[in-house]
């Protein structure tokens, strides 16, 4: 039963909050930028291929320009040599943007605890969802995507996220 304004305006109009509408749009059309560096990127390829088909979640428009993307998928090991590049790409993405660290390496350095491997990309850029596994199965990657979608539901368009983030490169 319609209440308030909707009752007055009849069947053709629905009211909602701005947050709800915008988030609904955002969560169902995420455009990922795949920052694939190593083995985990192969599992992303599987996620995108026919069987697991990431387009069921509205996230199949893979962009290779950070300026057109709003979801950064970091698949693979990030070395210190690569860290500035990752940071630059993150900065080039327009707000709002979300980041998923796919696999053990991106989350924590994984099995590489040594002089050249960054011990988790959250020392460089803010991360929203971490996916475990070395590499994670495609199902896990889809699960991570759904986690982001859920998170977006609860966000507000007015807030600037991660304003105060400081990483090792800042």
């Amino acid at each position: 039963m319609a209440l308030g304004l909707e009752a007055k305006l009849g069947d053709n109009v629905m009211t909602s909050t701005l947050d709800y509408i915008v988030n609904w749009g955002r969560e169902n059309s995420l455009w990922p930028f795949v920052y694939g560096t190593a083995c985990c990127a192969i599992e992303f390829m599987s996620t995108a291929a026919s069987l697991h088909d990431i387009s069921r979640y509205g996230a199949e428009v893979v962009r290779f320009s950070p300026r057109q993307a709003d979801l950064l998928l970091v698949c693979g090991t990030v070395s210190y040599k690569q860290a500035p590049i990752l940071k630059r790409i993150y900065e080039q993405m327009p707000e709002p943007k979300w980041v998923i660290a796919i696999g053990a390496c991106a989350s924590s350095g994984g099995i590489y605890d040594n002089y050249c491997t960054v011990q988790g990309i959250d020392t460089i850029i803010p991360v929203d969802v971490y996916i475990s596994g070395c590499p994670p199965r495609p199902e896990a990657i889809l699960d991570g995507l759904m986690k982001i979608q859920n998170q977006i539901k609860g966000e507000t368009v007015l807030e600037d996220r991660h304003k105060d983030f400081k990483g090792i490169l800042d």
């Binding site: 070395s79 590049i85 050249c116």
Partner: peptide, 25 residues
């Protein structure tokens, strides 16, 4: 060199069988 993950240095601290998972990668 962007994906240099220190395979060779890491191997020096592992037993021969422990290196097998590193070779996967």
């Amino acid at each position: 060199g962007y994906l240099h993950r220190g395979f060779e240095k890491t191997s020096e601290n592992l037993t021969y069988n422990q290196i097998i998972p590193l070779t996967d990668r």
